[in-house]
Design a protein around this nucleic acid. Structure first.
Lengths: 144, 144
DNA sequence: CTTATATTATTAGCGTACGAATATTCAGCG
DNA sequence: CGCTGAATATTCGTACGCTAATAATATAAG
């Protein structure tokens, strides 16, 4: 029993990596990454969102979201269009290819989530999710 | 309520990122990263471990650990020495500077962990840790 | 002994993630 | 109107974290 076995930060990062890897193993046949799947999912709910809004929804900063959208645009999954009256903002839209991919990827991600939770009861799962949300809020000073 | 709010993978990754950022904000004055702190911690318990062993303990693959140790060696925190009979293996040792830094960093990391858990009971914390470990084992096929 | 296989570490290449700095555009205020 | 400051997206530089491929050494089989 060393110091890391009791470190929430370490165990959290390790669990997150293991899930990301499992998801990417399944997504790789569609040539997208776990992060790109997350962006597809966000765009299903907010097609045409600005880069900033996407970053806020997903909790990525602007340089990160710019790079991800660059690669997704290169691969034909999304396109950038200036649509808002404000000429600073660039809106991101799913292409037909992106829409189709979002659907298959969503099913894969749900399967991985179910698998990760397979030894827990619904109550345990919802408590776990509450804890993850609380940690996130705590670390961002959204309570006290 | 969108699909991501119920996605364990997304919430796990988000919580992990928020803790990593909080930790790095405090570690930055010592010019080390959260990952480098983890390696320092592992070396406190296993000074002289091989690169492979370090990777196994921390659950990083070899290319990742090579790069991290490269940067830590550049910064004078560790040094590589061939010590084992097997000439393929390279052992990693803490320098005095690395040892000193490990101690201060450890205190900082403990404070962050306590802060992240501040709204939970000891039981809730230990249940949370169990869940993280179970997810990790599940995603790595270490049970069924 | 020699050939085949496995292990250890590294390199190369890609995709996040982040902080810092920059260019463009917008909004407010005198 | 003109100026200041804020907001949006990008670029730059750094550090992970992964897969695939490589080089060097060790081990096993014949």
């Amino acid at each position: 029993m060393n110091a890391l076995d009791g470190s929430v930060g370490f165990l959290l990062a390790r669990a997150a990596r293991s899930m990301k890897r499992a998801l990417e193993a399944r997504l790789s046949e569609h040539n997208i990454t776990a992060t790109q799947y997350i962006v597809l999912e966000a765009l299903r709910e907010h097609d045409g969102a600005s880069l900033s809004l996407l970053g806020q929804k997903l909790y990525f900063d602007n340089p990160t979201i710019t790079g991800i959208v660059d690669r997704m645009e290169r691969d034909g999954l999304v396109e950038r269009r200036r649509v808002a009256g404000d000429r600073r903002v660039i809106n991101v839209f799913l292409t037909p290819k992106g829409k189709a991919l979002a659907q298959s990827a969503s099913a894969i991600a749900e399967a991985i989530n179910r698998d990760a939770m397979r030894s827990f009861s619904p109550q345990q799962e919802s408590e776990f999710i509450n804890t993850l949300n609380t940690i996130w809020r705590t670390m961002n000073g959204k309570e006290d």
